[in-house]
């Protein structure tokens, strides 16, 4: 028996097919989901989703959202998602450096919040490339 994974963003369906296993970053840590997992609803953090197909792993950067699991179906709603194959390494690295610089220069509560979010997003995209 396999899981059916569906990853939705506001402007497209990123993934909609069967998988063997996934590892998902939630607000309270990473969870692994295999077939016949108990029904669960969880908030998804900005982080990496690992997908195991027949004999290989794929990674995907998720930008925060929500996931529900039940009846061997996983539905993940995120603001944005990118497969590691779609991410440009140089652009991602530059974005990370820019985000780090912005965080150091941030003043006030608002700018710090924004800079932190941008940094976490940029770091996730870089990690999605490096994770195997």
């Amino acid at each position: 028996m396999t899981l059916n994974l569906c990853v939705l963003t506001p402007n497209r369906i990123v993934w909609d097919s069967e998988v063997k296993e996934i590892i998902l970053s939630t607000n309270s840590g990473q969870i692994g989901v295999l077939a016949n997992h108990a029904p669960i609803a969880t908030a998804v953090d900005i982080g990496i989703l690992k997908i195991r197909l027949a004999n290989q792993w794929l990674t995907m950067a998720l930008m925060g959202g929500f996931a529900r699991i039940g009846n061997n179906e996983i539905t993940i709603l995120v603001n944005d998602a990118e497969k590691n194959s779609d991410i440009d390494p140089q652009e991602a690295q530059q974005t990370l450096e820019i985000a780090e610089a912005n965080l150091r220069k941030a003043e006030g509560k608002r700018q710090t919040i924004e800079a932190n979010l941008a940094l976490r997003r940029a770091r996730t995209r870089v990690e999605a490339l490096n994770t195997i």
Binding site: P10, T26, N27, S28, I31, A38, P39, I40, A41, T42, A43, V44, G64, G65, F66, R68, G70, N71, L77, V78, N79
Partner: peptide, 20 residues
């Protein structure tokens, strides 16, 4: 499923959903 579990507090769940 009616026996749905929440991984986090309901507040955290909604905190994740409402920005979406």
């Amino acid at each position: 499923s009616p026996i749905l579990q929440f991984e986090q507090d309901p507040v955290q769940i909604l905190d994740a959903l409402l920005p979406l």
